[in-house]
Amino acid sequence: MTLLTRIAPQLIALAALIALVSVFFPGFLAVEFSGGRLVGPVIDVLKRSAPVALLSVGMTLVIATRGIDLSVGAIMAICGASAALAISSGLGLAPALLIALAAGALAGLWNGVLVAVVGIQPFVATLILMTMGRGVAQLITEGRILTFTDAGFGWLGSGVLLGMPVPTWIWVVTAAAVALVVRRTALGLLIEAVGVNRRASALAGVNATVLLIAVYVASGLCAALAGIVETADIRGADANNAGLWLELDAILAVVIGGNSLLGGRFSIIASILGALIIQTIGTGILLAGFPSEYNLVIKAGLVLIILILQSPRIAAEWSLWRDSHRVEPRQRSRI
C-alpha cells in the first residue's frame, strides 16, 4: 500500500469538509499576503491545529504500541506553567524551554515506567498523571494565570517565520522529523511489533521495555511542545485550562487518521490529517456563525460521518455493492 492510498480517506474527508465549510463561509480558502505574513482562515487552521497535531504525533506512537496516553493535556499544563514561571523569574528563553521540555520528558518517563516496568495498564497508568498533573501545574502557578511579557517566548506562539505562523512550523518540523526517524530506520517497525505482540517481539530480541518507555517519553516531549505553543500564544500559563480535554482530541485525531487503537501499523501523516480535520471543523463552525449551543453537536455529527465512511465494514460493503452493479465485474481484492 503506497502512502497515497493509505491517506486517501483522510485527504478525501478533509477536501469534502473544506468544500462544506466553503458553502457556509465562501471566503474559507482565500489567502492574502499582508504585512509580511499570510492571512486567511486556512492559515488559522494550520496555526490553531498546532497543539492537537503535536499531541497526535506522540499519541500515534503510543497507540501503535497498543497503549494510550491520557495525560498529555495535563503535561501541557505542567510544561506551560514551568516555562512561564522560568521566563517570568528572568531565566531567559533557552533555559525556560529546556525546563519545559525536561518536565515533559520526565512526565513521559513516569508514564513509561508505570506501563513498561511496573506493568500497569496504560489507560490507568496515564490516568494517574491526567488527574494529578493539573494539580501540579496549579501548584506551579499558585492557581492564577501566570502572565509574562517576554517577546521571544511570545514569538513561538504568535510569531511569523517566512510568512507562516511559527506554531505551524513547529508541528510541521516535529511531525516530519519523527516520521523520518521511525520510517527511515527500523524503529517504526519495532514499535509496531511491540504493539502487535509484546511478548513475541521481546522473544525476537526487541527491547520492548526500553521501547515502551521511549514512546511515552516522546509523547511527553510532544505534549511539552504543545504546552509551550499554547502558553506562548496567550502569553500566560493558564493551569486550569491549558490543554484541557486535548488528550481526547489527540486520540480522535489518531483514530480519524485510520490508526487502530489495538496497536500495530500506524501512520503519523494520517494522524496529522486527522488533527487538521478536527481543526477545520472547529474553525468552520466559528466562521459559519452558528449559535454556540450547536458547536459540539455539529462537531460530533461530522466526526461520526467521517468515521462511518472510513469504517472497514462500510468500505467492504461498498466495494461489494459496486462490484455487483458492474456490467463486467473485474477481479478485485476485497480489503
Binding site: 463561509f25 490553531r48 500564544d233 496567550i234 493558564d238 485550562n241 474553525t283 466559528l286 456563525g289
Partner: peptide, 17 residues
Amino acid sequence: DFTRAQGKEVMESFLQA
C-alpha cells in the same frame, strides 16, 4: 468558554469573518 486561549481563537475567527 471563559478562557484566554479560546477567547483568542474565537476572536481570530470573528476578525476573519
